[in-house]
């Protein structure tokens, strides 16, 4: 449960794609010059029977889901939520907690710090715009400016970047 989601995250590729790619690219570059190369079209097999089967399975699953929701609300089968992967469990399932940082490299942050909590709005005097905490973080990150990890944020960086 706590292993990370596979790095490919559900994406798949046509069989043999990586076996063909190096020779394909080299062939185009050496023979065709320097124009843009277009995609190797290795179509995914789409079989009508598969689609029909998928539709049938979908209908059955949808019916089952409706049935389960009804029975769950009425308490027929479920004594608790155990066994159901709730949204709140997902971060643990994805093993995101392991990634949480503790350290804040305060030495990298220029200027005075401004402390605030939650989603309260603050006003940046320079342009009169209002930013939430998340918006300021995004603003700093997009401009490669240091962002502290704690609740303290600097707006001097924003002001400096606008000058």
């Amino acid at each position: 449960m706590t292993e990370r989601i596979a790095s490919k995250s559900g994406f798949r590729i046509p069989d043999g794609y990586f076996e063909h790619l190096p020779a394909y690219i080299l062939d185009h570059i050496t023979t065709g010059g320097r124009q843009r190369i277009h995609a190797i079209r290795v179509p995914f097999p789409v079989i009508r029977m598969e689609i029909t089967a998928a539709l049938c399975a979908g209908i059955i699953l949808a019916s089952l889901a409706i049935f389960l929701v009804i029975t769950r609300d009425s308490g027929i089968f479920y004594g608790s939520d155990k066994g159901i992967l709730l949204s709140a469990d997902l971060p643990e399932y994805l093993n995101l907690e392991e990634a949480t940082l503790i350290e804040c490299l305060a030495s990298e942050i220029p200027g005075p710090l401004l402390s605030f909590n939650g989603d309260e709005k603050i006003t940046v005097e320079l342009d009169g715009e209002q930013y939430t905490k998340d918006e300021i973080i995004d603003y700093l990150i997009e401009r490669d400016l240091p962002v502290p990890v704690t609740n303290e944020l600097t707006i001097s960086a924003i002001i400096n970047s606008n000058n």
Binding site: S87, A88, L90, P91, L94, L96, A99, T100, L101, E103, C104, L105, E108, D134, I137, L140, I141, D144, L145, P146, V147, P148, V149
Partner: peptide, 26 residues
């Protein structure tokens, strides 16, 4: 990326927090 290690750590930290919030609310 040409970004300082400190900024990357912070960026990653905030990304994780946002993902956690999204997963909890959707």
């Amino acid at each position: 990326l040409g970004t300082s290690v400190g900024a990357l750590k912070a960026s990653y930290h905030h990304a994780v927090k946002k993902i956690e919030r999204f997963l909890a609310n959707h």
